[in-house]
Amino acid sequence: MLSVRDLDLYYGDAQALAGVSLDVPAGELVALVGANGAGKSSLIRAIAGMELPRAGTIRFRDQDVTGKDSHTTANLGIGQVAEGRQVFPSLTVEDNLEVGALLPRARRKMKATMQEVFALFPRLAERRRQTAGTMSGGEQQMLAIGRCLMGLPDLIMLDEPSLGLAPLVVSELLRTIRLLNEGKGISILLVEQNVAASLKLAKHAYVLENGRIVMQGRGEDLLHDDRVRQAYLGL
C-alpha cells in the first residue's frame, strides 16, 4: 500500500533522513520505533507531503506521491494523527470533525462518518458542542483520531499518540488502534515511544536511528532482540 524508497530529507544542511526505505502492506499494522530525534516524525511529515524530500520516492497504491502537498495525499487516503494532536482548540468538537471531512473523497459522507466516529468515541458525542481546547489530553487524542477518520483514510500514520497520557488511557488508545486495523481494515503506521506495546501490536517493525533504518523484522522478533531490549526497553 505504502512504499518508501531511499528517502533523503534535509533541514537546511542537517540531514534528517538518509536512504530510508519502508513498506506498509495493505491492512497491516507496522511500527516504527526509535529514540527522540531519530527522524520518525520527519518521515511521517515527508510521507504526508509536509516536507519535501531531497531524494527518493514515496508511492501509495501504485501512485507516485513524492512531493505532493498534504491536501493531495490526504485525498488519496493517507491520514495522519500528528504528534501533539494538533486539534483546532477554539473550534467545537463537531466543527473539528466536520473540517476533517473537507476532502473531495470524504465530504459527501460527512454525516454518516461522524456517526461512526461518535460510535467509536461516545465521549466525543457527549462533548460535541465543547471547544476542543478545553478537553483533556486523552479526549483531544480521540478527537485527533476522529478528525483523521472523517477523511476516510486507507492508511493512518500515528505519531506518538500515547505521549503524555495516563496509563489507563494509553491502553484504551492502543485497543482503539488495534480495532481500526483489525475491525475496519485500515493500514496503520504507528510511531511510538511506548516501544514494548507497539512491537507487541505490530506484525512488522522498523528501528530508526539517526535518520537510518538500522533494523527491521517481525515485531515479536524485535521485542526479543538483545540490542532492541538494551537500547529501547532498558533491559
Partner: peptide, 14 residues
C-alpha cells in the same frame, strides 16, 4: 487556529 493542524488534516490551505 492551528496552521500545522490544518495541514495535518489535509485542508486545501492554498
Amino acid at each position: 487556529d492551528n496552521p500545522i493542524g490544518a495541514r495535518v488534516a489535509g485542508l486545501p490551505v492554498a
